[in-house]
């Protein structure tokens, strides 16, 4: 599956980014853009996604994480994720607060499930599910 980078408007750092649209749980009406971030360990999403997709974080274990220039608390919940036609279940951290307009796809719950090829010169990203 090949995806073009997402363009950002004219702001500092407004450069196209490798972003994938992810369906979280059964919330099929929402495509949540997530930055493909090989520097992130976990896949992290804003807490509103859990609220609206009916994912209960009440008793989920919490981790304190550093994100951007501040910290956040992530509730770790096994979650069904879907990109295109491919779905997989992985642990996701639902974070509050969350400084980004999108989520992050990290190593433990995204990169280990896909072969990821970044062609930054062409502003495109290719992912293929790992064959087990």
């Amino acid at each position: 599956m090949i995806f073009p980078f997402v363009e950002l408007p004219h702001i500092p750092g407004g450069w196209p980014r490798p972003v994938l649209d992810v369906v979280v749980g059964n919330m099929g009406e929402v495509l949540l853009p997530c930055l493909v971030d090989s520097g992130a360990m976990n896949t992290l999403l804003p807490i509103w996604v859990a609220d609206l997709s009916g994912i209960d974080c009440t008793d989920a274990p919490a981790k304190t994480l550093g994100i951007a220039s501040s910290g956040t608390k992530a509730r770790m919940v096994p979650t069904l994720l879907t990109i295109g036609e491919h779905s997989w279940e992985a642990e996701v951290g639902f974070c509050d607060p969350w400084p980004h307009g999108w989520g992050l796809l990290g190593q433990l719950s995204f990169f280990r499930y896909f072969v990821v090829t970044l062609r930054a010169a062409d502003f495109e990203l290719e992912i293929n599910p790992v064959q087990h």
Binding site: L8, G13, G28, E29, V30, L31, L32, H100, W102
Partner: peptide, 19 residues
């Protein structure tokens, strides 16, 4: 009954994840 990408358009470099 629509489906779309839902996000906040970054206003700062921090929001764009590019500190």
């Amino acid at each position: 009954g629509l489906r779309a990408r839902v996000w906040r358009v970054p206003a700062t470099s921090e929001e764009a994840g590019s500190m």
